[in-house]
């Protein structure tokens, strides 16, 4: 034991502890801004992450082109059929658009038409995903210099909630995705107006599913119901689409139940996203 606590060994241990302490203190003092490790590494690692993200994406595309040619041909045939269907459906287009606009205005959001959205948004790109098997988070290519703050919601172009900003550096930020076990957001079921809390659950994590719990009246929850943010509990504004109810399960006590929610956003393929930085005045 005497050998273990040699002078150099103590110095190495002390350096590790000092690094951890500085990281903890800078995190606590800055109130969610990136710790010193992120700050000192950002100038080097952000370009590296971006470059690798682009390289891996390109290689995936090449792999897909070479090895998935048959799949692409089959997909092409399906798409041709789909185009024929859409052409038939186009007769109803005007009516659908009008109905859609009316429903969107009723819900208070119009996700496909960004100019009419009541939010100030910044477009962002994912530059890396976490390497952890226990959590789901990713890094985006904008930070405090673009007006991004801790607690901002991150959505897809379709208006699907993807996650919430948890740590902000000067030019990059960390976003915890909706399936992460630390996530919790107030939710409302469209149609029934039942409220509850959608949260990440480790037992559903591998399935990329969420848990809708603390529902006022579970009997009013049905498979296929849309789950939206309620605007209560957390910083996410009301009306963002979280997902749909996939099943109803009994909890571990056997006395209560919760709903399993399939996220609307496909987390395995999201890449270009939007951060809601503010609510438009008026």
């Amino acid at each position: 034991m005497k050998d273990l606590i040699s002078k150099k060994g103590i110095i190495v241990a002390a350096v590790a502890i000092v690094i951890a302490l500085i990281a903890a203190v800078t995190m606590a003092v800055s109130g969610g801004n990136a710790d010193f490790g992120r700050v000192i590494s950002e100038p080097v690692f952000k370009p590296l992450r971006s470059a690798m993200n682009g390289l891996v994406g390109t290689l995936e595309d090449i792999y897909g082109y070479i090895y998935r040619y048959d799949t692409v041909v089959a997909e092409n045939a399906q798409l041709k059929e789909r185009i024929a269907e859409l052409e038939r459906d186009s007769r109803d287009y005007t009516e659908i658009v009008e109905e859609n606009d009316r429903l969107r205005s009723l819900l208070g959001f119009a996700m496909r038409d960004f100019d009419t959205l009541p939010y100030e948004m910044k477009d962002v790109t994912i530059i890396s995903w976490t390497a952890s098997n226990f959590s789901s988070s990713f890094t985006i290519n904008r930070g405090a210099s673009s007006g991004i703050e801790v607690g901002d919601s991150v959505i897809t172009a379709e208006g699907y909630l993807v996650g919430v900003v948890t740590e902000v550096g000067s030019t990059s930020s960390t976003v915890v995705s909706i399936i992460d076990t630390t996530m919790s957001v107030g939710a409302i079921l469209s149609g029934t107006d039942e409220t509850g809390i959608v949260e990440g659950d480790f037992n559903l994590f591998k399935e990329s599913r969420l848990k809708l719990d603390y529902i006022d009246n579970a009997a009013n929850v049905f498979i296929g119901d849309s789950v939206l943010t309620s605007g209560r509990g957390g910083n996410s504004p009301a009306g963002l689409i979280i997902g749909t109810v996939e099943s109803i399960r009994e909890d571990s006590t056997g006395h209560g139940s919760f709903a399993v929610v399939k996220p609307a956003a496909d987390l395995s393929s999201v890449s270009n996203l939007y951060v809601i930085t503010d609510i438009k005045a008026g």
Binding site: A16, I17, A20, A23, D35, G37, S41, T130, S132, S137
Partner: peptide, 15 residues
Amino acid sequence: LAYNQPTIMFTLTLA
């Protein structure tokens, strides 16, 4: 850094 977390947990653990 790869885990998107503050440089505490694995910095200490691997040291």
